[in-house]
Design a protein around this nucleic acid. Structure first.
Lengths: 132, 132
DNA sequence: ATATAAATTTAAACTAAATCTAAATTTAAA
DNA sequence: TTTAAATTTAGATTTAGTTTAAATTTATAT
């Protein structure tokens, strides 16, 4: 039968995402693998990212631009993007459970995942804008 | 000087998005314009969608796949995507204001926009899965 | 009204991200 | 150990969206 597995190349990709303190794109991951002297084919990186996302080991983020970013942080959490400098921060305050259950009830869906993206101006950009 | 404007082609694109009861992609919009016999260049549709999004007249949704979808509904609202059939529904129960202000406080950001995407299994898919 | 300068539209070329293909390799488990 | 399925690979291909440069339209100052 054979089972889908966390194979060696997938593990290499997973490690890069886990160790990143940003939200790397596929291209970023390829660069970082190369910098470590680890050889993983282009298509395999994409395959691995899809696998890891489907397994729930990492999360795919669709923020600005057309390229997906990836997040290896364990706890589910929201993100906040600065519309001015593009910085992405984690949001650790979780959404009220009561809202989630209300949404589940309203929609009739069995909820499996949430992706919350806030946009706004980060503290640094707010300050630098005041100066101008 | 000249001002950015809701020009004729932009209005045509806007009308398509406003009248859609789904969440059309750029390609969908081009098809619907063509079906109406309205000629708008490919690049102009993209230009128009960017313009309309920046003006806040419509909203860009990044759901499954690599193509953006657009939503012309006036009130800001969350979306819920069925992971099984791909259907996209509107979520009308708004997030508690208290959560939003807590996020603003935590992050120090000046919030301008929120994009909330729920994923799960829609009622129809839940039922059809029970049968199997 | 008219001239002028800036913005917008257009068609076509181009770019970049991601997927597909088919052959080679690895892996699981019979 | 064999066999079938899964995975990897390199390269070709697809696709969404952007860029380019010329033509057109538009806003507004005269």
């Amino acid at each position: 039968m054979t089972k889908r597995n966390l194979t060696a190349p997938r593990k290499l990709v997973y490690d890069i995402v886990l160790q990143a303190d940003d939200h790397p794109t596929a291209a970023d991951i390829i660069d970082r693998l190369k910098a470590r002297g680890q050889s993983v084919a282009y298509a395999t990186v994409y395959n691995s990212l899809r696998y890891l996302t489907e397994e729930g080991l990492i999360h795919e983020l669709k923020l600005e631009g057309k390229t997906s970013r990836y997040d290896g942080r364990g706890e589910d959490h929201a993100h906040i993007v600065c519309v001015s400098c593009g910085k992405v921060d984690e949001v650790m305050t979780p959404p009220p459970a009561e809202w989630l259950s209300k949404v589940a009830e309203e929609s009739g869906y069995l909820l499996t995942e949430e992706q919350f993206i806030f946009k706004g101006e980060c503290p640094a950009c707010r300050i630098s804008k005041q100066k101008n």
